[in-house]
C-alpha cells in the first residue's frame, strides 16, 4: 500500500529524513518509534503532503502510484489520513460542518454527489457513540477550547468518518489519560480491517499495549536503524534508545 523508497527530506536546507525505506501492506499496523528530534513527525507530515518540506531525493508510492509531488487534499482523496499531534483551532466552524465539508469534498473529487443528510447524520451518530463523544461536542467550534484529550478524540472521530485506507497517527497518545487512551485505541482497532493500514508514530510504548503493531521501526537521525516485531518496543521501553546507538557503532 505505502512504499517509501530512499526518502530524503528537509527544511530550509537542513536534512531531516536521510534515506527512509518503508513498506506497509494492507492489513498491517506499523509503529515508528524514536527519540525526540529523530524525524518522526516530519515523516508523518511528508507522507501527508506538507509542502514546507523539500523532498530532495527518493519517492513515496501509494497503491502503486507515485504521490511524491501530490497536493495534500489529493492524497486525502486517495485515502491517506493524518491525525495531528497539534490539531488546529477553527473558530466559527462546528465539528459537524467541518466533517461534512471534508466528506463531501472527497466525494466530489470522486465524481460522487454529496452524501444525503440523513445518511450523514446516522454516520455521525454511530461514530460519535463508538468514541463516546457527546452530541453537544459536535456543535462546538472545531478544536476551539478543546482539552488535549478532546482534540485527539476528535481526530480519531474524523478518521472514523473519513474511513481512510492509511491512517497515520502522530503522537495520538500524548496528552491522553489512560481512560481516554483506551477509548481512542478501541476506536482505531474497530476501524482496522484487512483492507486498510495504520502507521503509529509514538515516543512511548504505552499506546502499543492497546494497538498492537505487526512491525516496530526505530527512527534515529532521519534513518530507520532497526526494525522488528512488538517485542522491540518492550526492549526500547526498558532500555531506552542508547543501546541502539551503541549497537550501531
Amino acid at each position: 500500500m505505502l512504499k517509501i523508497k530512499d526518502l530524503h527530506a528537509g527544511l530550509e536546507g537542513k536534512d531531516i529524513l536521510q534515506g527512509i525505506n518503508l513498506d506497509v501492506k494492507a492489513g498491517e499496523v506499523h509503529a515508528i518509534m524514536g527519540p525526540n528530534g529523530s524525524g518522526k513527525s516530519t515523516l508523518a507530515s511528508v507522507v501527508a503532503g506538507k509542502e514546507e518540506f523539500d523532498i530532495t531525493k527518493g519517492e513515496i508510492d501509494f497503491n502503486d502510484e507515485d504521490i511524491t509531488e501530490m497536493d495534500p487534499e489529493e492524497r486525502a482523496h486517495k485515502g491517506i489520513f493524518l491525525s495531528f499531534q497539534y490539531p488546529v483551532e477553527i473558530p466559527g466552524v462546528s465539528v459537524t460542518n467541518f466533517i461534512k465539508t471534508a466528506i463531501n469534498e472527497t466525494r466530489k473529487s470522486q465524481g460522487l454527489e454529496d452524501m444525503p443528510a440523513s445518511e450523514m447524520l446516522k454516520m455521525i451518530k454511530d461514530k460519535a457513540a463508538m468514541l463516546e463523544i457527546d452530541r453537544k461536542f459536535l456543535s462546538r467550534s472545531l478544536n476551539e477550547g478543546f482539552s488535549g484529550g478532546e482534540k485527539k478524540r476528535n481526530e480519531i472521530f474524523q478518521m472514523a468518518m473519513l474511513e481512510p485506507k492509511l491512517a497515520i497517527l502522530d503522537e495520538t497518545d500524548s496528552g491522553l489519560d489512560i481512560d481516554a487512551l483506551k477509548v481512542v485505541a478501541n476506536g482505531v482497532n474497530k476501524l482496522k480491517s484487512e483492507d486498510n493500514a495504520v502507521l503509529l508514530i509514538t515516543h512511548y510504548q504505552r499506546l502499543l499495549d492497546y494497538i498492537v503493531p505487526d512491525y516496530v521501526h526505530v527512527l534515529m537521525d532521519g534513518k530507520i536503524v532497526k526494525s522488528g516485531t512488538k517485542e522491540l518496543a518492550y526492549e526500547l521501553e526498558e532500555k531506552g534508545y542508547d543501546w541502539i546507538k551503541e549497537e550501531m557503532v
Binding site: 509542502e51 495534500p72 471534508a102
Partner: peptide, 11 residues
C-alpha cells in the same frame, strides 16, 4: 499549519 490541516482532510 492550519491550511495543511484543512487540506489533509481533503478540503
Amino acid at each position: 499549519e492550519a491550511l495543511f490541516y484543512l487540506r489533509s482532510r481533503g478540503i
